[in-house]
Design a protein around this nucleic acid. Structure first.
Lengths: 191, 191
DNA sequence: TAAAAACGTTGCTTTACAGCAAGAATTAGC
DNA sequence: GCTAATTCTTGCTGTAAAGCAACGTTTTTA
């Protein structure tokens, strides 16, 4: 039984160890090195990941090769290339471990079977979708309404772990600016 | 029984008229004039709308007063200020009918009760969330990766009804540009 | 610990889009 | 159908951020 995942479930719903055990058996443990690509754009995403340790990054590359990061899954978070996973179509997103990571993995078929048959997984999935939506909305309104400096300030306030833990270049791709600009913005904070 | 809604349900799942009737009774008919504000930012969104006729618009206003449109619900679409509806918190979004519209309305409490107890509504809600997420992702990557001209071309190709049916000013707020820029971009298409 | 590679900063130039103003076109009201 | 009120277009100017280049700093690797 995956204790860490059970703890996560308990924060969302109330299920017994034996109920959890039925779910748990569909998850497999996986260890990946830093920088490993778990999914490359152009492939179909068949997996949902739960991060035990480390960090996954979800990003797309534009035609000009510019990277564009959507989401980081740190410890105790689920993550997948959700659009591909939902639609069972080719992904425009990549999944990369940006630290050496330990994961639990469930494949798409098993997962959706559980969504249909298991009320706890149904609820968890609802939570994942709701959270993903709410987060993406914040991002849209941030991108459209705010300046790059506003977005940086927001990040510093609400997701400082990203600023502390991740390299500059990747933060820039998350904020939607170039590393040059990020550097300048940071400098402007202290003036 | 709301026939039009039943048709919608049948495209998503297979339920009998009597099963639908139990759901249907929670929806109420509502008629609104053009320009009517169904939800103003600062209020909590307690309703989910289904558009029978007309069009609803979901938008936020920035601190500078600039409007920013997220979504249009045309005929046979569901729409709500989803973030507020999910979290049961104050909405930063407004809902406005941009044409005289006929709607079906269900309130939040009834809806979530049905999500818990009724497998069809559970499925419909999953579909709404998945669709909302996928759409918002496209928007994010569009906003970050593409130029305003790319976005306009995308709109012309995939959502021409918006271009045809809605005023320029509103289209601009959807594309995330000023009406000035939209005007110039349109001109640049024919050169 | 030395060499190489990657990352971060900063000056200069370019670019996409914003914002104002003023005129043209379309729509609405009587 | 004519005036008034929006809405749309277009020239000019301003600005936030991109992109390049060059240099400094930190990290990796051997």
């Amino acid at each position: 039984m995956h204790e860490s995942l059970y703890q996560y479930f308990l924060t969302k719903t109330n299920l017994s160890p034996s109920e959890f055990a039925q779910i748990s058996e569909h998850f497999k443990y996986k260890k990946v090195k830093r920088g490993h690509i778990l999914l490359a754009e152009g492939e179909v995403c068949h997996h949902l990941y739960f991060v035990l340790k480390g960090c996954l990054r979800f990003f797309a590359t534009g035609e000009d090769g510019k990277e564009n990061t959507r989401y980081f899954a740190f410890e105790q978070k689920f993550g997948t290339a959700l659009t591909s996973f939902i639609e069972n179509k080719i992904s425009f997103e990549n999944i990369q471990s940006i630290e050496a990571s330990e994961l639990l993995v469930i494949d798409r078929d098993n997962f959706y079977r559980l969504v249909e048959t298991n009320k706890y997984i149904n609820l968890i999935y609802r939570g994942i979708l709701e959270m993903a939506y709410v987060t993406s909305q914040r991002r849209i309104y941030g991108l459209q309404g705010d300046t790059a400096l506003d977005r940086l300030k927001w990040l510093l306030e609400y997701q400082p772990s990203i600023m502390i833990r991740l390299p500059h270049k990747i933060i820039a791709s998350y904020l939607g600016v170039t590393p040059y600009t990020l550097s300048r913005l940071k400098a402007s904070l202290y003036n």
